[in-house]
Write a protein that binds this DNA or RNA. Structure first.
Lengths: 343, 343
DNA sequence: TGTTAGCACTCAAAGGTGTCGAGTGCTATT
DNA sequence: AATAGCACTCGACACCTTTGAGTGCTAACA
């Protein structure tokens, strides 16, 4: 992994990677020589390129084409070559503006963020909301919608709202629902949703509450209400990947789109990059997103006031403009964290 | 429009349309003759086809290819030729099962429905939720999330939930929020959300309430809460349109995907087909969805217990399997209406 | 010893040519 | 009115050649 390369080899590799990122075409020795301000001849570059190929950093699609970087090369590039661009004033403005604009609930902000990421990067933007289950309980409320139909509304301290339609065995009148709410609100104060759920389950076995009609009913209903599966995922800018020449072929595209319809895969990725701080980069097969299509993922986590963790990032071809995407993801994650900490 | 055709011409047109729907390839005279149980020769068919072309029902991509139906032909086909398939038992089972399975809030049901439509039709499924604004107010609630930060939760009698983060000038303690809620709940009982909003605005000008501290505060906050823009749109199965040969080309696809990112267009369509009962069909340019790519839209509206109206349907190529899609859309709309009326 | 110029070689892409066959329109025939 | 026959059209396909970008290798050079 920790390849040792002369300064010259590194420069040439960098030139090739950046050229390829810009053009999506195999890079030839003469192109590199030209770009390199003429200080080397193409023949010399060829020798170096042969070395790099031997080391597994380059491949050629066929004998007489230029070379293209391997995943390993991208890895090396992002680890030790890439010169990160500054986030421009205009980009900063856009990020901040879009964050605020929503002015609405958590999910609106996150959706808007996903869109912003997509716009700024020209790839796909993705945001995974902080897991509701690990967030702190704030409020529960039952509303009678009809005969034996109750709407349960569950609010976390992030301001995330979950609602659930519950069918009950017997009808409950509004006052009863209010009392149930009061009881449960008190019981769950300060717990996370997961803890609250456990608490409900243990209380249901408790002899004292078992024989209290109101409580046992309340617990039975709330059990459903606090069972929340799956996290919210916001993906925006799917059309943009059609701009990339490597995805002009329908079969490849389909693979990607299908990967996104099964959101499970995304959540797997999420859990991986939750653990570490700062920007995480997954290249090609490291993403386990798609077999044949080579996609990369640049992500960072963000935190909320109640210390729950979400994830945001950008998905694009391995041939992605890392130098600008990485700072954008980084900056956006910081801004979102700040915004969400204000609550 | 009301083309007059002999029975034979109609049969031949039907054969061509159905053949083309099945194969996506221009249909030749001999293919039609064969399919037609040999009762006619290809030469005869050719004459008829020449007529049909003259009437604007067929075109040929070039002199020696078969013919393909025009939009006009599809229109004629769905209006007076198509033999609608029955919805199979298995399909019915799937529709019903998916409706119920969710067991969760309105939006989950609609999302699931969109997915079911996509699965059964093999095209894209689309569902537009009943407009929140025209639904009947059920409940409003304020929850304090932090200093000068209030989460407003608004519930309609459909069980749709809207939440909104509101920043206030001064901090409000929980008891005050409860009293505000009670006051507003009483005030808005029985109104639609739109009416509720108007009521709030008029009350704000009312001299009596103007000088009641609690009320004026409540009104100011609720004004934001009852201002809801945009309807929910659920689109599923976007990957499926990649199966259609006519969309294997990236440029066309992009056009469609972009159309969907701007959901405005969809809502325009919605409003058109809201007015009429039963299944509505828009073919090609009638959809105004995409300039070059030829897509069709089969929709129907559905109603809820509170008499608000939503829309659901299927989007696919003009060359869509109308005979099976139309009954599926019809049946699904009926089932959803029934399910939502139960509340 | 590292760099470079030169040269033969490779191979995809692009363009040209010829054949094939599905499909047509027209006309004469039944 | 329906059909069989026939000349014609034109895309699809296979095959070929040309072109040019790019390579590896070797010998000369600083």
């Amino acid at each position: 992994m920790n390849v040792e390369l002369s300064a010259r080899s590194r420069q040439i590799l960098e030139a090739i990677v950046e050229d390829y990122i810009a053009t999506a075409e195999p890079v030839g020795s003469s192109a590199v020589a030209r770009r390199h301000a003429m200080t080397l001849s193409s023949a010399t570059v060829r020798n170096v390129m042969a070395n790099l190929e031997e080391m597994g950093l380059l491949t050629s699609p066929h004998t007489s084409a230029g070379r293209i970087p391997t995943e390993k090369a991208y890895r090396f590039y992002v680890d030790s070559l890439v010169a990160l661009r500054q986030v421009s004033r205009d980009e900063k403005r856009q990020i901040i503006q879009h964050c605020r604009k929503a002015g609405a609930g958590l999910s609106d902000i996150l959706k808007e963020t996903s869109r912003t990421l997509s716009q700024l990067s020209n790839y796909m933007g993705i945001v995974v909301a902080p897991s509701f289950n690990s967030d702190v309980f704030r409020h529960i409320e039952f509303i009678r919608l009809g005969h034996r139909k109750i709407l349960a509304i569950l609010v976390s301290s992030n301001g995330a709202v979950q609602n659930r339609l519950i069918e009950t065995d017997e009808d409950h009148d509004p006052e009863e629902l209010v009392r149930m709410g009061n009881y449960l609100n008190e019981m769950m104060q300060g717990l996370t949703i997961t803890q609250a759920r456990e608490r409900v389950l243990s209380e249901m076995k408790n002899e004292k509450t078992k024989y209290d009609h109101l409580m046992s009913r309340a617990l039975r209903i709330s059990e459903q209400a606090v069972t929340v599966e799956g996290d919210d995922v916001f993906v925006e800018g799917q059309a943009r990947i059609l701009d990339q020449p490597e995805f002009s072929d329908a079969a490849r595209m389909k693979e990607i789109y299908e990967a996104f319809e099964k959101k499970g895969i995304i959540l797997q990725l999420l859990s991986r990059c939750m653990s570490a701080d700062g920007v995480q980069i997954y290249i090609g097969s490291e993403t386990s997103l798609s077999r044949s299509a080579s996609v990369s993922l640049v992500t960072s986590r963000f935190v909320t006031s109640s210390n729950t963790v979400g994830m945001l990032g950008v998905i694009g071809p391995t041939r992605m403009g890392y130098s600008s995407v990485i700072p954008i993801v980084d900056y956006t994650a910081r801004m979102i964290s700040r915004l969400l900490s204000e609550v």
